[in-house]
Every structure is written in structure tokens, then in C-alpha cells.
Design a protein around this nucleic acid. Sequence first.
DNA 1: AGTTTTCCTGATTTGATACTCAAAAATCAG
DNA 2: CTGATTTTTGAGTATCAAATCAGGAAAACT
Lengths: 220, 220
Amino acid sequence: MSKSATVVALGKGERTAAKIREVALDQFSRLGFERVTMGGIAAAAEVSQATLHYHFQDKDQLWRSAMLELSAVISEEERLLSAARDAPPIAQLRMAMRLFLQISWRHPALGRIVALEGMAGGERLDWLNQHLLGPRNRRLVDLARKAMDAGDLKPFPPEMLVVTLQAGAAGVINLAPLMRSAFGIDPDTEAGRAAHEDLILNALVQGLLADRSEIPEETR
Amino acid sequence: MSKSATVVALGKGERTAAKIREVALDQFSRLGFERVTMGGIAAAAEVSQATLHYHFQDKDQLWRSAMLELSAVISEEERLLSAARDAPPIAQLRMAMRLFLQISWRHPALGRIVALEGMAGGERLDWLNQHLLGPRNRRLVDLARKAMDAGDLKPFPPEMLVVTLQAGAAGVINLAPLMRSAFGIDPDTEAGRAAHEDLILNALVQGLLADRSEIPEETR
DNA sequence: AGTTTTCCTGATTTGATACTCAAAAATCAG
DNA sequence: CTGATTTTTGAGTATCAAATCAGGAAAACT
């Protein structure tokens, strides 16, 4: 092993491993764990299947390694948000929500992974919460609770905010195939993206109705 | 073949086929197409695997037959809504949205299926849109457009309403495992259900903020 | 009851996929 | 350049799930 110090050109091994992780992340996020095959990843990464097992023992470990590629995304979100540490909770929350949505768009893999595994449940979801999503979720819940205490947010279980937010992101990111199939609309355009971000945020924050009347109860 | 008229006790065959469809719908909605095995369905339905292939040729056809079990749910929604045919579009839309959410709760399979396949895309999603969801989606879009024309709804692509609504339902139904894993909250209780329905509907219709100030733009 | 038809099953085939391993090829240190 | 080390691979194994089929059980019919 090379003993030269921290800044080194990546060795051959680490370069192919990185390529594999990249391909794997893409496929896992678009197809979900089960529909991805080692063969498919190997082909897309232009290596043999055995190489996958050399660098990452098995499919599960490859999945985890691929997920960790997303750590940087979460960290960046954290960094941007910490700049507003001293703002009132409601302002931080708004910023956090917008950041959440923006990041969901810029890195669709993250949102898709959470939605896919969030529906399936199981060990992989637990792993995600423990290694990737935990701090982010706790921070959002915490902000929501503080904003609620300050009277700036309607009272509801603050954990719901995160799920609702995730679901809102899912609506336009993860359900893109649904939009295409059902309505022939392609949300993967820059114009579409901006419009949809505003729509979701507007919906969550201000609602969609032009007037302010109450929701009818007659159908309960 | 029995020639006796319309009202007959179901023959043995149709009874087991119904049992199989029921089990299949449950498993498909909870696990998604790939994670469900014919063996698993057979075991749960207490028949042999070969019986599945006798009644439904292959896994795809079984899936479709199971999905058609949900037609009744959609029809019931249609029936309830058509009673309000003469109300103003915005009132119909509100009713439709509440119905949509209520039905998502009462029949979680429907919402889960749409979310699961809506993320995956592909032939099964197209089939769902064509055979199950098409009319419902078109009706919602139509109502949204009319409400918009009447000035009762903020302007946005009306198709987004359906996806947003679906996503809202997904947030509490489909992402139940996420809620459990991330927050230790179980949304599968009657109290939880009612609270969540109100939350989503409030969010979509009126927004979550207690005040009415604008969304900040600084993070754009 | 006897006969025909429908229904169900065990055993098997076929196909796909994760994973292993010995050996070849590429890379690197001195 | 040379030998040691890392990396890659082709070929193969084991496992699991879908689909088939011929024969037998059950149901329906007369």
C-alpha cells in the first residue's frame, strides 16, 4: 500500500470502486434494491461482475457504500442551514423546507431512495435513518416544534412535517413516472422544476385555495 | 358449465380464485411486485403454487386481476361524488380531495400500489392508468381547472393537484414504515388517522403557517 | 350412481441471479 | 527491469422463483 501522504492520485482500485458506487447509486435510486442486478451494475460500470464482489463483498454492502455517496449532500444542507442558526425558528424552518425541496430536485437519488425504502421498511430503511437521515430529520422536527411553541405554526405532530415534506418532494420527483404515464407531463425540465417547487412549498405553507374559507366537513 | 341464471352461489373455482386475488392484492400492495413470490401467495392462500397458474396464467395476470379488485373502491368514490354534481367546482373539488384521502386510508392498498408503481414506472403503471385510475385522475384535473377558471384556486398546472394529493396520501399511508423507523410513530391507529387526514388536507388547502406572510426567497 | 367437467397438486423444468475461486493481467516499488 | 502486490476476470456453483404438465381428486350434472 502507498505510504505517501494524504494527497494522492487515486489508485486504480479506488477509481473503479468510485465508478461502481456511482453507477450503483444511480441504479438503486431509479429502480430500487430488488430490481437492480449485480450484472446490470457491472455492465454499466464496464467491469466484470466479480469485480463488484472484490471491492464490495455483497450486494448489501455495495448498496450501503453507494448510499454513503449521499452524505456530502446532507452535509452541504447542514452547512447552508447553520448559517442561519440565529434567525427565528420559523424563518429557519422555511429555509430548511426550501432547502429540502431544492436538494430533492438537485439530487433526485436521495429523495427517490428515501421514498422507495420508506415504503418498503426493513433493515435498509433503519440503516438509512441511522447513518444518513437521522440528524436531518431530528433538526427539522426540532425546528417545527420551536416554531409551534412560538405560535408561528399550526399545532400538529411535528414529525408529520418531515413526512409531509418528504411526500411533497416525492410527489414531483419520485412520482415523475406517474406524471408521465397519467398526464403525459415531463417534470424533468428546468421550467417544470421551478414551478413545481413553488407549488409544493406554496401548498405546504399557504395552501392552494385562493380564498380562505374552511374545509367542508360534510363528507366525514 | 352451469346454465342457471345470474344469482348463483360461487362455484369452488371462483371461490379459491377470489381468495387468491385477495391475498395477492394484500401482498402486492405491501411488498411491491418484485418482492412478492408465487410461493408466498400460494402459502397464504393455502393452495399449491400450480393452482395460481391454473386460475391466472402467470404472475402478471394475477397482478392485474388483483388490481381489478380495487375497481369497486373507485366506483364507490365516483358514486359519492356524482351526488354533488351540481355544486360549484370548488366545492366538488374539496369533496373530491377529502374523499380521495379518506379512501386512501380505508383502502391503503390502493394508495400504496399507486405510489409503488408510480415510482417504478413501466408497463404496470400504464396499465393502472388505463384500467383503474384514468377516469378518476381526469375528473380531478377537470375539477381543478374549472375551479381555477372560476378564480377559486391559485393558478398552477392542474395535473399537479392529483400528484400532490397522491403524494400527501403517500406521506402518511405509504411512508408509514418511514414514520415508524424514523420517529417511532405508528400512524396505523384510528386517532392517528383522523389527525393525519386533517393535517394533509389543511396543508394542501390552507397551508401550515399560522400567519399569512410570504415565503422567503433568499435561498433560491 | 355414473359420467363428465372442473379443479388442484407434486414433481420437474427453465431461467435468472448472487456469489466463489483459481488464475491471468495490470500496477507499483525498488 | 523484476518481483511482489493489487486488481480483474472467466468459468462455474448454488439458490431461488416462475412456469409447465400429466395425473388424480373433487364437484357438478343427468
